[in-house]
């Protein structure tokens, strides 16, 4: 699941949570595949983001994410467990982007 700002929402994205307006009414249900028309409507409502299918990671490029993680680990202390954690976090990103 990814939280995407309205400005970055694209046609074809699938909603994983309903969009609810200020008065608590469901405007678009869970599972809706977004169309241009719906996105226009969202732009006119007081809503800043939606939850869509996919990984949070994909809002950034894979390389950028891996670089960030490598940098954090390089600066920090290390031992057997840290090496394992580092490796699994990179693996997780690789798999998310498959």
């Amino acid at each position: 699941m990814a939280k995407v700002a309205i400005a970055n929402v694209k046609t074809g994205m699938k909603l994983l949570k309903p969009v609810i307006n200020d008065s608590g009414m469901v405007m678009l249900g869970e599972g809706t595949i977004l169309t241009d028309q719906m996105i226009n409507k969202l732009n006119n409502m007081n809503i800043s983001f939606v939850y869509v299918e996919g990984s949070q990671a994909k809002t950034k490029s894979k390389e950028a994410l891996i670089n960030e993680i490598n940098e954090r680990f390089q600066k920090s202390g290390t031992n057997e467990q840290m090496v394992l954690l580092h490796k699994l976090m990179i693996e997780h990103i690789e798999e998310t982007y498959k």
Binding site: E68, I69, R72, F73, S76, G77, T78
Partner: peptide, 15 residues
């Protein structure tokens, strides 16, 4: 390690 939030520095304490 995930880089979520901020706890006062940009390092990861060792496990």
């Amino acid at each position: 390690a995930k880089g979520f939030g901020f706890a006062g520095d940009y390092l990861i304490p060792t496990i």
